[in-house]
């Protein structure tokens, strides 16, 4: 019985995969075949839209229209029945839990971006000089493949706490105890818990920063470095006066990418502490408003605040893209 049920499950899984993947390709072939019956002039005008339509449809359905809808809901009450003006926004900027979330988010932004990028840069420069570079890079980069949930479990284990006197099974507390201190409740102690969570994100993102910065560092022409050396620059001067200015644009790109990611981070807080003990961030508050308190107005207002926060990045991206196009 159990076996046949599992077999059925597996078969339906394969069927689902084939249908989901094959369906979309069949769609394109079918549409293209139909368009071939149109005269040439019309065909060349219709065909681009045949290729674009599925993309535009999902973009509209999942990003553009919902974004507009969320904007509207953010001005309405918890069940989106009555217009409440700016109430939800006033709540978002005055409620004490929200203010803590803002503070935490700021902390996340500054620490994760600052440390990941600078550490990533240092590693990128240093790793260039060791023969086992690929291995070292792979090890540091590896966390990028791990989900926030998986990373959370890994670090819960690192932060595990046993009362004093018991054998510590968490690595961090074992070290603390070995150094002669009391074990710390990393996730419950309000002075350190936010930093404990932020450390996870740094662990995850440093590899990303390193890989991008490393390729930028390698892109600096060797003769520029050599010219600087002949001009009498030492390694530190080369780092500050040649390397950093030359990879400046990459540093900006990496930083903004991490900023956007950190703004949206929710999983780590959600899994590790559930946002309790003053560890909430904006994104996790939003899920709470939405699911726990069922207040869609407030949830939407918080989402809009997130959107507003990324708009400068959006504008910068578009500018950069337009310059890039102009240079083509």
């Amino acid at each position: 019985m159990q076996d046949t049920a599992n077999l059925m499950r597996l078969l339906s899984a394969i069927a689902a995969i084939v249908l989901g993947s094959g369906g979309i390709i069949a769609l394109f072939y079918g549409a293209n075949w139909l368009v071939n019956y149109l005269p040439y002039g019309l065909r060349s005008r219709v065909l681009p839209w045949v290729y674009m339509t599925p993309a535009l449809a999902v973009l509209a359905a999942f990003l553009i229209l919902p974004t507009i809808r969320t904007l509207i809901i953010s001005f309405m009450d918890r069940r989106s029945e009555a217009f409440v003006g700016l109430d939800n926004y006033i709540f978002a900027f005055t409620n004490s839990a929200m203010l803590i979330a803002f503070r935490n988010n700021l902390l996340w932004l500054v620490l994760v971006t600052g440390i990941s990028v600078s550490l990533g840069l240092v590693i990128a420069v240093l790793v260039d000089r060791v023969p086992y570079e690929p291995l070292a890079k792979a090890l540091i980069f590896l966390p990028m493949a791990i989900s926030f949930v998986g990373a959370s479990v890994i670090w819960r284990f690192v932060y595990a706490y046993q009362p004093p006197g018991f054998e510590q099974i968490g690595l961090l507390n074992a070290i603390v105890v070995a150094l002669g201190f009391e074990p710390v409740g990393w996730l419950v102690n309000r002075t350190v818990n936010n930093f404990a969570l932020i450390a996870i994100m740094i662990w995850l993102q440093t590899g990303f920063a390193m890989v991008l910065l490393s390729s930028a560092v390698k892109g600096i022409p060797q003769d520029v470095i050599e010219a600087a050396r002949i001009d009498g620059a030492n390694e530190f001067q080369i780092f500050w006066r040649i390397t950093i200015p030359m990879i400046n644009s990459t540093i900006v790109v990496v930083s903004t990418t991490i900023i956007v990611l950190v703004l949206k981070v929710f999983d780590i807080v959600f899994v590790m502490t559930g946002g309790n003990l003053d560890t909430d961030v904006i994104a996790s508050r939003m899920i709470k408003e939405m699911f726990n308190f069922r207040n869609f107005g407030r949830g939407s207002a918080i989402a809009v605040i997130l959107l507003l926060a990324v708009i400068p990045v959006m504008v910068a991206n578009i500018r950069r893209f337009q310059q890039q196009e102009a240079n083509r």
Binding site: L63, P66, L307
Partner: peptide, 18 residues
Amino acid sequence: VVIVGLLVVPLQMTLIPV
């Protein structure tokens, strides 16, 4: 250009309506 802009739209913006 619109697609480049959409790159950074937070998912959270879309959850409730979807």
